[in-house]
Every structure is written in structure tokens, then in C-alpha cells.
Design a protein around this nucleic acid. Structure first.
Lengths: 215, 215
DNA sequence: GCGTAACCTTACGCACGGGTAGGTATGCTC
DNA sequence: GAGCATACCTACCCGTGCGTAAGGTTACGC
């Protein structure tokens, strides 16, 4: 009626397609602005659609964010799980997993920054992320345990958990570094992480430990 | 007039004191609710003061949050710097620094969770945190460099930086773990971290490296 | 005792943005 | 080509909460 003289490239699209467009737009905008600063209007606009459609398809703002989180999180977990086949030796699995992880972060820098760095702080989503993270940590801990048993050693579960926490934390930190250095090479970053992680873990596996000085 | 029959424990206090009370309240509320969900009214209420006073003393909501960030961040950095005197050997410095760090996190779980986990994601504050974090990473990298030179080895600056990133990330991850496990012992957590960090770093210092398999 | 300055209050303006009501166009089925 | 479902729009409501204007109240100097 006002503008919209005619609809030149205005196609009616099936729901599934629109939903993906919306999610793409949402990830982009959430990533650029952050959850709160992002407005549903901007997301709708960026998807080339109007706001009520977003509500009709993906629900409220929170639900939309969770949907983004889920899509990207699943992609990440699948990328890692697909790379680190369980029948490989532990160091090989670790290496492939790390390479997949950094490859993913390098490729979807937006997805990572928004859906992870963001979500960890934001109250209603922290739990969601914590769950995924927990699964990852379990996998890493399982890898370590496997490697240990293969060498005939045994370590208390809590120690395994802590080492896994540290490895995952270190990887996240390097992922942030990667996201902030667009020119950096994911493969090389993975190699560096592998150096830090495996050499440290390997020593642990041999039973070498450090003790606090008595001061 | 309405209620407030009389002001029983209603003291006029000097500015400096009130400011600290406000900051205490702000940290508490920001920590409980998160930055956006926290309302200036609740903070004022919790500080036993009315809202305009907060604006008069600490400025807008963002400025208030930054003020919290600054106070807690400075406390943390001082705790670490005070513990890790620069004239000690590198492993001793690392150990003392870690112990101070985890001790701080254990003691001020609120301050840590809010002012750090929160701030890293929230758009306008990420830079602030990144700066502090950057200083910490530099310190750690400096420690590693020092230790290396003492052994007559030399490593490229970027490798140092990456290792420092990894160590800091691992420590943050364990700090989160500590914040989520109220019964855990900070000292013990520091020891575990030291095991992961130093043993890995130590091997790096000896020039042992890991190379990706040619697949 | 009285002014004045700092402390502190109640009460409100106002913008912003999430969410919705109600109506229009388009394609599919028979 | 009638009828129906579904994609899609414009325009609006309204809660929430930041930030402020204007006015009490307490302490302290003289």
C-alpha cells in the first residue's frame, strides 16, 4: 500500500526454509549485538521477513535463542564426535577431536562467539551450555581414563574430571583467541593446543606428579 | 508521612562509606540476577538507600557495573601480584600465583561468578575484562619466557602467548568448577592445576614437542 | 537558633522493544 | 474456479525499568 510498489523478489517459501533463514539471521544478529541488545525487529528484518512470522515459527526471543544454541551446539558436537572415532588410540582421538573443534570455531566464528561466549553468562541459558560442556568433559575424561587403563594405571575419578576441565577450558580459551585473530590458522592452533594438552597429560599418565612445597 | 514512623537506625553516612555499601549491594545483586535482570531499584534497596543516591554517586547502570568490575578485578590482580613476587623462581611464582587465584575465587565466589563469567559475554564490558585478562596472560607469558631463558632455550613469542592463553583458560575453567562446588578446597584445586600446568609447560621447556601425524 | 549545604526521598517521564490482533495475498486441492 | 489452508503483513498495545525533577530532612558553622 505505501511503498512496496510491487513485490519483485517476494517468494512464499515453505516453513522449513524460512525457519533456517530466520535462524541464520538470528545467529548473525545475536552475535553482533548480544542477546539483549538484539531486537526481534532487526532479526526479522535481516531474515527478510516480518516480526510476527518469527513468533509464529520460532516462538519468543528466549526460545529463539535456545533454538540457535541448539542448532550450533549440535553441529559442533557432531563435528567433534564424527572426527574422534572411539576405536582409535587416545592421542589420535584427542588430536582429531581438537582439529575438528578448532576447525569448527574457525569456520563459524559468529556461531561460536554468540552461542557460546554469550550464553555462558546469560542467566537462563547457562544451564543449557553447561549441559553440552558437561558432555564434552565426560568424553575427554573418558579418553584419559581409557588411555590410563591401557597403560595399567588407575587414577581417581575426580582427578580425571579436573584434568578434563582444565583441557576443555584451555581449548575454549584458545578458541576465543582464534575467534579474535581472523588471520590465524585453525590447524596450527589445534597443534599448539595438542602440545600443551597431550604432553601434560602424558606426563600425568606416567605417574609423574607435582607436590606443593612445604612453606 | 506514610509509613516510616520514625527513622530508627537511619544514619547519614559520608560518601566513601555509602559508595562501598552500594558496590557491595551491586555485586550481590548483579551476581544473583545477572546484569540485565538486575534492577537499579533492587540494588538501591539492598544497599539500604534510594535510587537517586546511586545515580548521584556511581552514575548509570553501566558505569556502576564497570565500577564493580574494577573493584573486584583490582582486588584479584593485587592478590595475585602480591603472592607471586618477581624475584622467585618461575615454578614457585606459578604456584603462588595459582594459590592466590584460587584462594580469591574460593573466598569471593559471588564476585568471581558475576563480575567475570557475566562480563565476558556482555557486549559493553567484554573489552574491560579482556584488558585485565590480557595483563594476566602477559604476566604468565613473561614467567614462561623467564624460565626458558634461564635454561638457555628460546621460543617464539607467539608460542609463548598461546601457551599462556591455554594456562589461563584452564585456570578459569577450574575456577568455574570451584565456584560450582562449594565444598571443594581451593588449595587442592590449585595443586591440581599446578600439576596440569607445570608438568606440561616443563616438558615444553625441555624442547619436547608433539607433531601432527601425516594422514 | 538560623542558614546552608550535603544527604536523601517520593514520584514521575518516557523510550524502547517484546509480543499480538486482525486483516490480506497466494498457492493447492478437487 | 470455489474453497481452504497457510504464508505473510501493518499497526498497535503495554509492561518494564532507566534516569530525573523537585522537594524534605539532618548536621554543622556561626
Amino acid at each position: 500500500m505505501l511503498a512496496r510498489v510491487s513485490s519483485p523478489t517476494f517468494k512464499r517459501l515453505p516453513r522449513a526454509v524460512r525457519e533456517q533463514q530466520m535462524l541464520d539471521a538470528a545467529v548473525k544478529v545475536f552475535s553482533r549485538r548480544g542477546f539483549h541488545a538484539a531486537s526481534m525487529d532487526e532479526i526479522a528484518d535481516d531474515a527478510g521477513i516480518s516480526k510476527p512470522m518469527v513468533y509464529a515459527y520460532l516462538g519468543t526471543k528466549e526460545e529463539l535463542f535456545v533454538a540457535c544454541l541448539h542448532r550450533e551446539g549440535t553441529r559442533l558436537m557432531e563435528a567433534i564426535a564424527g572426527a574422534a572415532a572411539p576405536d582409535l588410540p587416545a592421542d589420535e582421538r584427542l588430536w582429531r577431536g581438537l582439529r575438528a573443534f578448532f576447525g569448527f570455531v574457525g569456520a563459524y566464528r559468529d556461531g561460536w562467539a554468540v552461542l557460546y561466549r554469550q550464553a555462558r553468562g546469560e542467566r537462563p541459558f547457562a544451564a543449557e551450555v553447561a549441559t553440552m560442556r558437561g558432555r564434552l568433559i565426560e568424553v575427554v575424561a573418558g579418553m584419559l581414563d581409557h588411555a590410563l587403563r591401557a597403560k595399567g594405571r588407575e587414577v581417581r575419578a575426580i582427578d580425571l574430571e579436573v584434568v578434563a576441565y582444565a583441557l576443555v577450558g584451555a581449548s575454549e580459551s584458545l578458541a576465543d583467541w582464534l575467534a579474535d585473530h581472523p588471520e590465524a590458522d585453525p590447524e596450527k592452533t589445534a597443534t599448539r593446543m595438542m602440545n600443551v594438552a597431550w604432553l601434560g597429560a602424558d606426563r600425568l599418565l606416567r605417574g609423574v606428579t607435582w607436590h606443593p612445597p612445604t612453606d
